[in-house]
Amino acid sequence: MHFKSYARTLAIAVSLAVVAGCTSTGGSRDGTMDDGRANGGVGTGTAGAGQVSGTGTNGVSADRAGQQADGRIPEVRTIYFDFDRDTIRSEFESVLVAHARYLRSNGNARVVLQGHTDERGTREYNMALGERRANSVKRFLEVQGVSPSQLEVVSYGEERLAVRGNSEDAHAQNRRVMFAY
């Protein structure tokens, strides 16, 4: 009982810190991002993690919603990449921010960042490209204050295609990093 309330206090403190952190990071990464977007950026809301919506609009709601949100793994667990790129697309920054918040609030949580490529090119070279993508996500999360000990990178290259076929659409759905908690 005693421990629980302490844990809750800690969680609230951490989640507040997270909100502050993601706002400033969002701003520094993309000058056009205003605070509203960076917070709502926890647009994880739009991306499916409804319970996170409203986080951080003010301290009070961050308190309650944050607890809820930080207790659950964000629902969006896949982000996609451009051809031959390992840079995080701006539309997915909010997803990473939500995962960063979750991981900071749940210090015992560990996640495997699974890097994937499309099937063009050789298998072992793609293994290396998939690792680059997953490392790019890892660095983003670390900048967000996630402990490296919570993160592991495993590249699958082109070995676990999400979609078969040689269409551009299939390729785009295969170039991804998945969060496996």
């Binding site: 676990r160 295609l161 999400a162 078969r164």
Partner: peptide, 9 residues
């Protein structure tokens, strides 16, 4: 040899 996609292979 390989069959299936994604998590089901």
């Amino acid at each position: 040899t390989a069959q299936g996609t994604d998590q089901d292979m």
